[in-house]
Design a binder for these strands. Sequence first.
DNA 1: TGTTTTGTTCATTTTTTATTGAACTAACCG
DNA 2: CGGTTAGTTCAATAAAAAATGAACAAAACA
Lengths: 187, 187
Amino acid sequence: MPPPALALPVALPPAPAGGVGRVRRGGVAVPGDGFEDGVVEIFVRLARAAGLPKSYGEIYGLLFASAPPLSFADIQLRLGLSKGSVSQGIRALRAVGAIRRAKMPGDSRDHFEPETELRKLVGGFLQESIQPQLDDSDRRLAALRAQLDGVGAAPARRKILQARFDKLARWHRQGRAVLPWITKFLG
Amino acid sequence: MPPPALALPVALPPAPAGGVGRVRRGGVAVPGDGFEDGVVEIFVRLARAAGLPKSYGEIYGLLFASAPPLSFADIQLRLGLSKGSVSQGIRALRAVGAIRRAKMPGDSRDHFEPETELRKLVGGFLQESIQPQLDDSDRRLAALRAQLDGVGAAPARRKILQARFDKLARWHRQGRAVLPWITKFLG
DNA sequence: TGTTTTGTTCATTTTTTATTGAACTAACCG
DNA sequence: CGGTTAGTTCAATAAAAAATGAACAAAACA
């Protein structure tokens, strides 16, 4: 049997009458209030800007806009996402430290609440997403340096290429240097 | 018959024999040397990380790895991109200040060279890509604050939501504050 | 001026990425 | 235990983003 007309989740704070409800491919989201929608919208944009799937932004935004921690089922219902998306979204957000489990007395299901310390959020993101890239660059730059010797070219051209390579290497160092500083600044 | 063997471009610095040549949907790229390929590869990854199309990274990378400025046709041939992609890529890169026109005596066609000052590169990117987002956020946050008043909720919940909103607003201010500092740091 | 060369625009196609949902495993409950 | 609920995995599908190429404009040439 496909999901029959769903009973509203009991545990959720009642959704105000006015809302329209986000509509999705697979189903219809339970309407949230304007505040919630606004916050979700903001985090969806942030997610996109960070190159993350929209659904991640929705999930984080929903948790951010909710006073009590929400369960898997709450999230799925409010956003109208598939189980698969919610599962993957939660996993990714937890991996980055953006959300964490919260114990809800008398309910064995997982509940989640957002990490709201900017430093930790950004730190987690940098750690998980940027750091690996930087490490990869290290290897690539080393390989490049080797290549550089093999380039047969007129001295003038050669000199320019050498300079470009040096520039690239310097950028890389500078990049490495700024990151920790950013997190500190946000403390 | 697939694209017949193309005559090699006369104006280009001769490509060393060893290379294989990047292959693309529409055609075959003229092989570059290992250094060039390595640099292109690095910038492709950077582009992806910044949420930009791969082709932008290729174009910038190619120019970065080339001592002399390159023409539209050079770029198209070396990378095997369509005219459309090259045109759009060049436009976008110029808009951000990542590349600029270079006069080539005795050749009326456009030639381009990369901006290699990190500060300008990052500055341009932040200016063009991040700033508009921040401005948009300003509007959204203002709207949210209004919404917040309309949320009917128990005092306890209300207080939490208020706190969350304040946090969001603070993040936003902090974000605005770091950006200029980053560019300065990279100077 | 006509013609060729250079570059742009944008509807179509391709590729990539995200989402879905059904089959599965694990934990809980009676 | 058997049955129900909770959550994961992953192949298939849908949506979003990028690349293509043909029709077009603008400049250079002769």
